[in-house]
């Protein structure tokens, strides 16, 4: 956080959000602050850039349309925005399951453009296998991992997005790692491939 107190960030943000209700430039600042974060969240929930762009746009349109009604009642603007994104993703998954499109692993392989160079640390094959395993987890566990490791949110902040306590988030994280370990071990037993 660069030595800045998170509380003062929240206070500044609350003022900015109030201003954004009247001032388009203030909404522009909020947009700049969150567009990449929301995009990353949606990208890892959908697995492709095309839908990530579509759902990121929908998230911000929805936020702008409903900004007048937003009030910080223990849910900071960022958490509110992630909730909107989460709902957009949930609708997307529901529509997609009705239409029964594409296999997830195909999407993961097809979507490897524009990833930071550090990704070369691990082979693409291993990474894709791990992403595939993550996408097979229940929705709340995927959400937790992405908010924790991509958005870099603390357990308290994740709790605000997901409507759970800090303790519940820690517990869910533990169970998620256990499930993922089991899934990865199962894959190793299944086809001899190291994940």
């Amino acid at each position: 956080m660069g030595g800045v107190c998170p509380v003062s960030i929240e206070e500044n943000e609350a003022a900015l959000v109030e201003r954004a209700k009247e001032d388009p430039a203030a909404f522009g600042l909020l947009y700049q602050r969150y567009v990449k974060k929301i995009y990353n969240y949606v990208y890892y929930r959908t697995g492709n850039h095309h839908d990530a762009e579509d759902l990121t746009a929908r998230t911000f349109y929805h936020a702008l349309s409903n900004l007048d009604r937003y009030q910080n009642r223990g849910v900071p603007f960022s958490a509110w925005l992630y909730r909107i994104a989460h709902n957009q993703v949930a609708n997307w998954h529901r529509d997609r399951s009705r239409r029964k499109v594409i296999a997830l692993d195909e999407v993961v392989v097809a979507s490897q453009r524009k990833v930071a160079p550090e990704s070369l640390i691990e082979s693409e094959e291993e990474r894709n296998a791990l992403l595939k395993a993550i996408r097979q987890l229940p929705s709340d566990r995927q959400q937790l991992l992405i908010l924790k490791f991509t958005a870099g949110l603390s357990n308290v902040e994740i709790g605000r997005v997901m409507g759970r306590s800090e303790g519940a988030i820690k517990s869910l994280y533990h169970r998620t790692l256990l499930a993922l370990r089991e899934k990865l071990a199962g894959e190793m037993d299944g086809d001899g491939e190291k994940i």
């Binding site: 522009g28 567009v35 990449k36 524009k114 990704s119 990474r127 992405i146 993922l180």
Partner: peptide
């Protein structure tokens, strides 16, 4: 497992054309 998940979930960059275009249409909407 946690370290591998962290490595797998690397930040991705949206295209700058997309970011600019969405910003424009949001400002038009305001």
């Amino acid at each position: 497992v946690a370290a591998r998940v962290k490595q797998a979930l690397l930040p991705v960059e949206p295209s700058s054309a997309f970011v600019r275009s969405l910003r424009r249409s949001l400002l038009a909407m305001t």
